[in-house]
């Protein structure tokens, strides 16, 4: 028998050091799932920096309760394992719930955090969900599988769960003033893995936060990627690539866009020599305008692009660079 509705809780757990986008996206997911389920949601903001602004945004998103959990030993770039231990400690200090849905920021870091949290709390990891709802049968989650070609629906009748859900940013329109509790955590954190660090030589900003992403695929060689990087720099954008381009060593894996890489939501995504597989398109926001350059007029990328050029990048890119230079 499923738990009574009143003991179900949606809790958005957000590391503040991950920035406003992570905060607003997680609040957005909590807002939507809560509204559909006829429930409220609570926000657990983890970290030391920006707590006041975080609390203001959570209140504006309609959080019924806010908890600011600080830990003196959490670095701004803390590993997900440490964040999960501190976060789990804070979760255990929340009011009891028979079934709790923990939502964490979408994206690769959030997915790793979700799995760590599930391990520490012995909760069910639901992973990278495309939909979540709460019915009398329990939590119902939907996930893309088989490279984004099938969607799989799962039901969890009992027990808590941790999930990532990408539904867009929260609407920050509430004027309510929810209760805000402060927690000082003293969780014993694991020593971070010892690493030797050096710079990787990357000049461009991260691909996931750029207004324009210039991206190349299997059809572009090393010389072409040098032109794409130059173009990205001139447009104040960033550089991305498809999985085959990463495999070929044309672009680093941290710039891989797609179902197994980064999710990007720029205004414009310039796809050069990219065929447009569902696996690649899954990494691009539906709101993004795609501009395609491809010599194959039948390439699937033209089915989703707003503007396209059927042509060879070896001719188009140098000319485009000349024009953008002026």
């Amino acid at each position: 028998m499923s738990a009574p509705l009143k003991t179900r809780e949606i809790l958005a757990l957000i590391p503040l050091a991950w920035g406003d986008d992570a905060l607003d996206m997680t609040l957005g997911a909590a807002q939507r799932v809560a509204a559909d389920a006829g429930l409220g949601f609570a926000a657990l903001l983890l970290g030391n920096a920006g707590a006041e602004e975080g609390a203001r945004r959570a209140a504006a998103a309609g959080a019924a309760r806010i908890c600011l959990a600080a830990h003196g030993g959490l670095a701004l770039d803390a590993e997900p394992a440490a964040l999960a231990l501190a976060g789990a400690d804070a979760v255990r200090r929340q009011p009891e719930a028979n079934q709790r849905l923990l939502l964490v920021p979408p994206g690769a870091d959030g997915e790793e955090l979700a799995a760590h949290l599930a391990a520490v709390l012995d909760a069910q990891p639901l992973g990278r969900c495309s939909a979540l709802s709460w019915t009398e049968a329990g939590l119902e989650a939907e996930r893309a599988t088989w490279g984004g070609r099938l969607r799989l629906g799962m039901t969890q009748a009992d027990g808590s769960a941790v999930a990532c859900l990408r539904l867009g940013k929260a609407e920050l329109s509430s004027t309510a003033e929810p209760p805000c509790e402060r927690l000082e955590l003293d969780t014993v954190l694991p020593a971070p893995l010892a690493v030797e660090e050096s710079t990787s030589g990357q000049r461009l900003p991260p691909v996931e936060s750029a207004r324009i992403v210039v991206s190349g695929g299997r059809g572009v060689n090393e010389q072409g990627f040098a032109l794409l990087e130059e173009l990205a720099e001139r447009l104040d954008g960033s550089l991305g690539g498809s999985l085959p381009a990463v495999d070929a060593g044309m672009v680093p894996v941290m710039r891989q866009v797609g179902v197994s890489g980064k999710f990007v939501s720029p205004d414009i995504y310039l796809a050069v020599g990219i065929s447009g597989t569902p696996q690649h398109l899954a990494g691009i926001s539906p709101d993004t305008r795609i501009v395609a350059i491809n010599k194959d007029p039948a390439a699937d990328i033209f089915k989703v692009a707003s503007v396209g050029v059927v042509g060879d990048w070896e001719q188009v890119l140098p000319e485009l660079l000349r024009v953008v230079e002026r």
Partner: peptide, 12 residues
């Protein structure tokens, strides 16, 4: 498993 498989369908 605590999670029951409920549905398998083509991607939207």
């Amino acid at each position: 498993s605590d999670v029951r498989l409920a549905d398998l369908a083509p991607a939207r």
